[in-house]
Deep mutational scan, measured.
Amino acid sequence: KPRTPFTTAQLLALERKFRQKQYLSIAERAEFSSSLSLTETQVKIWFQNRRAKAKR
């Protein structure tokens, strides 16, 4: 499955949200993903990867 190329605007929004909160609830994820027109899975995986990156 090819990787999702996120737009610059989407990445900025994701990073901004991540700075506020490293873990999203299911409801927050649903709302946030639709506002960015991404799937919930894409947002979930992005947050997982971003948390892993923050640990390094």
Rank of each mutant, 00 (worst) to 15 (best):
I45V: 11
K53V: 10
F32S: 01
K17R: 09
S37G: 15
T7R: 00
V43K: 02
E28V: 00
Q42L: 04
I45N: 12
I26F: 10
S35Y: 09
S34E: 10
L38S: 05
S37F: 02
T41W: 10
A54T: 07
R3G: 15
F32Y: 04
S37A: 07
F32Q: 01
R51W: 00
Q20C: 07
P2H: 07
K17M: 14
R3S: 15
Q22R: 06
S37M: 05
Q20M: 08
Q42Y: 08
S35H: 10
Q22H: 06
T8E: 15
A9Y: 14
S33D: 08
L24G: 01
E40P: 05
L12Y: 03
K21I: 10
V43L: 06
A52H: 07
Y23R: 09
F6D: 04
S37N: 13
Q48G: 04
R19F: 11
Q48T: 06
P5R: 08
A52M: 08
R16E: 15
L38V: 08
S37R: 08
L38G: 00
R56Q: 14
A9P: 08
F18Q: 03
K21C: 09
R16K: 13
S33E: 00
E28M: 07
L36N: 04
F47P: 00
K53W: 06
I45A: 10
R19T: 14
Q48R: 03
A30R: 09
T7F: 02
P5D: 13
R56F: 14
W46H: 13
L11Y: 09
T4E: 14
Q22Y: 00
R19C: 15
S25K: 00
Q48F: 05
S33L: 04
R19A: 15
R29G: 10
S34K: 10
P2S: 10
L14M: 10
E28G: 04
L24N: 02
V43E: 07
L24K: 04
A54I: 07
K53T: 12
L24C: 01
A52I: 02
N49Y: 11
E28Y: 00
K53D: 12
A13P: 00
Q22N: 11
A27M: 05
R29A: 15
S34Y: 02
K17L: 14
Q48S: 10
R29D: 04
S34D: 02
P5T: 09
K44H: 10
I45D: 13
Q42D: 13
K44S: 14
T39S: 13
E15L: 06
R29M: 15
N49T: 08
K17S: 01
A27K: 06
W46I: 00
S37K: 12
Q42T: 06
R51K: 07
A30G: 08
L12S: 13
R19P: 00
R50W: 01
V43P: 02
V43G: 00
F18C: 03
E15G: 02
E40V: 05
S25N: 08
F6I: 04
S25A: 06
F6E: 05
Y23S: 13
K53Q: 15
Q48L: 07
E31A: 05
L24V: 02
L24A: 03
E28T: 02
E31I: 05
Q48K: 02
E40R: 01
T41K: 10
R16L: 14
S34Q: 14
K44L: 11
A13N: 06
F18V: 00
S25E: 09
I45M: 11
Y23A: 11
R29F: 15
K44R: 11
K1C: 14
K44N: 13
I45Q: 09
A52S: 12
A30C: 14
E40C: 00
T39Q: 02
R56M: 09
R51Y: 08
A27V: 10
T4K: 05
A30V: 11
S25L: 00
W46V: 00
A13T: 05
T8K: 09
A54Y: 13
S33A: 07
T7H: 03
Q10P: 04
A9C: 02
K17H: 01
A9D: 13
Q20F: 11
F32M: 08
L14P: 15
I26T: 14
S34A: 14
R16V: 12
W46D: 00
K44I: 10
T7Y: 03
E15H: 05
L14V: 05
A54C: 13
Q10L: 01
L36V: 09
A54M: 10
T41H: 10
T41C: 11
F47Q: 03
R19I: 12
K1N: 15
T39W: 01
R19M: 14
Y23E: 14
R19H: 14
F6T: 06
A54R: 05
Q20Y: 07
L11R: 04
S25R: 01
R50S: 08
K44Y: 08
P5F: 15
K21Y: 07
N49G: 08
Q20W: 06
T39Y: 02
K17F: 06
K53L: 11
L38F: 07
V43I: 10
S25F: 05
R16F: 10
Q22A: 12
N49H: 07
P2C: 06
T39M: 02
E28P: 01
S37Y: 00
F18M: 00
K17W: 01
L36D: 00
W46M: 03
R16A: 14
T41R: 06
Q48H: 12
F32R: 07
T4L: 07
K21A: 13
P5W: 02
S25H: 14
A30Q: 09
T39N: 08
S33C: 10
W46R: 00
A54D: 12
R51P: 03
E40K: 01
F32K: 03
A27G: 05
R50D: 01
V43C: 07
A52K: 05
E28S: 04
E31H: 00
Q10N: 07
R3F: 13
N49V: 06
Y23G: 05
R51L: 08
A9V: 14
Y23W: 10
E15D: 05
K53P: 05
R3N: 15
L24Q: 07
L24D: 01
L38M: 11
Q22F: 08
A13G: 06
L36Y: 06
R56T: 13
E31C: 05
I45E: 15
R29Q: 15
N49C: 07
A13C: 14
P5C: 11
Y23N: 09
Q10W: 02
F6M: 03
T7G: 06
F18T: 02
K17P: 01
L12R: 15
I45R: 06
K44F: 04
T4S: 10
E28L: 01
P5Y: 12
E15T: 03
E40H: 00
L12E: 12
Q42W: 00
Q48C: 06
Q20P: 00
P2M: 12
K17D: 06
R16Y: 07
Q22L: 04
A52V: 11
Y23H: 14
P2D: 11
R51T: 08
R50A: 13
E40Q: 05
Q42A: 13
F6W: 04
F6Y: 07
R3P: 13
N49Q: 08
Y23Q: 12
F18S: 01
S33Q: 03
A13W: 01
E15V: 03
K21H: 11
P5S: 11
I26W: 08
E28R: 00
I26D: 14
L38Q: 00
T39H: 10
Q20N: 04
E28F: 11
S33V: 03
E15I: 01
R50L: 02
E40L: 04
T7C: 02
T41A: 14
E31V: 07
Q42V: 05
Q20A: 07
L38K: 04
S34P: 06
E15P: 04
K21R: 10
R50C: 05
Q48V: 06
T7A: 02
Q10T: 09
I45L: 12
T8G: 09
I45G: 08
K21V: 13
A52E: 15
